[in-house]
């Protein structure tokens, strides 16, 4: 459904993403992992149109998305969250999500209804009248998901939505992601927590120094010596 071909993004001399290809299938949850600075967020930014890739192609259901602006990519059906959350601080939680829903309809009342559904689904319904700026980080992370969900995406790009959550909040988030998938949304998820990503993903792609290091079923990838080495080098194994 989503196909990324030979994507490369350079900042000056540094190739933050170097010739990465991957495919996300319908109804799939694909995990994207890699040590800090591996280029995962940059990869997302290039797919979502927040940055222009230096080389490569992005295709959604066979249609070219490469180089499209972020809002066009969203229109086309790809929702994204930001690792560093970007709530509309002075708007209420509901209005934050309503803005996302305007991607589906120009009617404010309809958008409000869509927003309320998304809030219900993400467990933020009782927070709807709170100003987004006044919420703690775990809730703001969920708000990111709710907003992206309200745009009515076929694909969601989730960037470390579980970082900073406590174990019970992580459980909730995993349930949420599975619910979203059951509603037919394909998910590409970046996550640092190894336990989470292996339990939730159908397949995993590993990035390291901007390159694709490995790809496959969670168990296979985790036992891949190259992957173990990459993480050991970063002192990453100790994280989980």
């Amino acid at each position: 459904m989503l196909e990324v071909r030979h994507l490369t993004k350079r900042f000056g001399g540094l190739a933050a993403v170097n010739d990465v290809s991957l495919t996300l299938n319908k109804g799939e949850i694909l995990g994207l992992i890699g040590p800090n600075g591996a280029g995962k967020t940059t990869f997302f930014n290039c797919v979502a149109g927040a940055m222009q890739p230096s080389e490569g192609q992005v295709l959604l259901e066979g249609r070219e998305l490469t180089g499209k602006k972020a809002h066009d990519v969203c229109r086309a059906g790809i929702g994204r969250t930001y690792q560093i959350v970007k709530p509309f601080g002075k708007l209420s939680v509901r209005d934050n999500v309503l803005v996302g829903a305007l991607n589906q309809t120009r009617n404010v009342a309809d958008a409000r209804r869509i927003a309320d559904e998304a809030l219900e689904l993400t467990g933020l319904a009782d927070q709807r009248n709170v100003l987004a700026a006044s919420m703690p980080l775990p809730r703001r992370k969920r708000l990111e998901i709710a907003r992206a969900l309200a745009t009515g995406p076929k694909i969601l790009l989730l960037d470390e939505v579980m970082a900073g959550l406590n174990p019970s909040e992580v459980e909730l988030a995993i349930d949420l992601i599975k619910t979203l998938r059951s509603r037919g949304i394909a998910i590409l998820i970046i996550e640092h927590l190894m336990r989470v990503i292996t339990s939730v993903s159908d397949r995993i792609v590993v990035m390291h120094h901007g390159e694709k290091l490995a790809e496959g079923a969670p168990s296979a990838v985790m036992n891949d010596p190259k992957v173990v080495e990459a993480y050991l080098g970063e002192g990453f194994v100790a994280q989980d």
Binding site: A48, G49, A50, K69, A70, H71, D72, C74, R75, G79, R80, Y82, K86, P87, F88, G89, K90, L91, V99, G100, L102, N103, R147, A148, T151
Partner: peptide, 13 residues
């Protein structure tokens, strides 16, 4: 509030 976030939600800023 945030132009990048608005763009990501489908708003042609």
């Amino acid at each position: 509030e945030d132009e990048d976030a608005a763009e990501a939600l489908g708003i042609d800023t």
